[in-house]
Design a protein around this nucleic acid. Structure first.
Lengths: 159, 159
DNA sequence: CTCATAGATTAGAATCATTCTAATCTGTTG
DNA sequence: CAACAGATTAGAATGATTCTAATCTATGAG
């Protein structure tokens, strides 16, 4: 029994993930449950990425930044898989895609109602809590259309 | 004198632009003045593009859509020039760039304060008049940063 | 536990919007 | 009209993202 579990863990997590799991037990566990709920297999790569993404605090990543990060952590995941995973997590409601920069896509681990500062000089996103800003008098959309969501981006620059 | 003006017009406007000018006298004249004010030479290409863009009603274009349009109108302008021109017009305050879609840049001839519906199924922008929506309680940006502008995008889908 | 298989990963090619290059052309000014 | 700064352009280059099709692996059945 003990051996079975070790085997399973080794298979699921791969070489370096013991460390990742220690770094980040809760995020990974929660993510694993949510992956299962979405019909996504808990592969080594997805667990590693989830471990980095869901550490408790809100994060904003691009495919490239996350790929760099996971690679620097000594884990081998292809860029294609990072892209796939970001989209699958988004589909599963674990991430939200943020469009603020024509050249890059950002993904946000905070999927609740909130807005962003976008630092145009550095290409960095900063959360604004959901209750802060109020958007009122949003008009009814044209016929046959329904509001999906309202995005507010406060673009900021060095003073 | 008459001959000089004709020549100038012919040179500035090229083969087919007599028609374009007739189609769109006010937009072109206004644009010409504003180009001059920005130190941009009134070339055939820029006048043609301005003629299409500034016809009085607000427009949303992408580089590709504008290039198609000017090409269909029988005018030969390279895609590179369309990109250059859109950016120069934006720098001159004649256009505003709108980021709503990770895969494309939109340019809006309405540079006044206003917001957009973005039709996610069709990739189409629809103006919301500036006085309609109210955004309140925008927090102070982090130290050393100043608000450049606040973008509001109401994402809509087929009901 | 083992196997078959659906699902996942990946290297590398392909794509798409956009930018760059450097050669040629044109508006402007003297 | 000459000369030159500025503009245009074809085509190459870039960079993010997606696709392909070959190889792996998690899972459920037996």
């Amino acid at each position: 029994m003990v051996r079975n579990m070790r085997e399973a863990a080794r298979h699921a997590m791969g070489r370096t993930s013991g460390r990742a799991a220690e770094r980040d037990p809760q995020g990974q566990a929660a993510a694993q449950a949510r992956l299962k709920a979405s019909g996504l297999r808990p592969t080594r790569q997805r667990l590693e990425l989830a471990g980095l993404l869901f550490q408790g605090h809100d994060r904003h990543v691009t495919a490239e930044s996350l790929h760099d990060e996971v690679t620097r952590a000594g884990v081998k995941v292809s860029l294609a898989t990072v892209y796939n995973t970001l989209h699958q997590f988004t589909g599963a409601g674990l991430l939200r895609q943020v469009v603020v920069d024509a050249s890059r896509s950002y993904f946000d681990t905070n999927v609740h109602d909130h807005q962003h500062f976008f630092h145009e000089d550095e290409g960095r996103l900063i959360d604004i809590p959901g209750e802060t800003i109020a958007v009122t008098n949003v008009p009814t959309p044209p016929d046959g259309l329904a509001v999906d969501r309202v995005d507010v981006v406060v673009r900021v620059k060095r003073a």
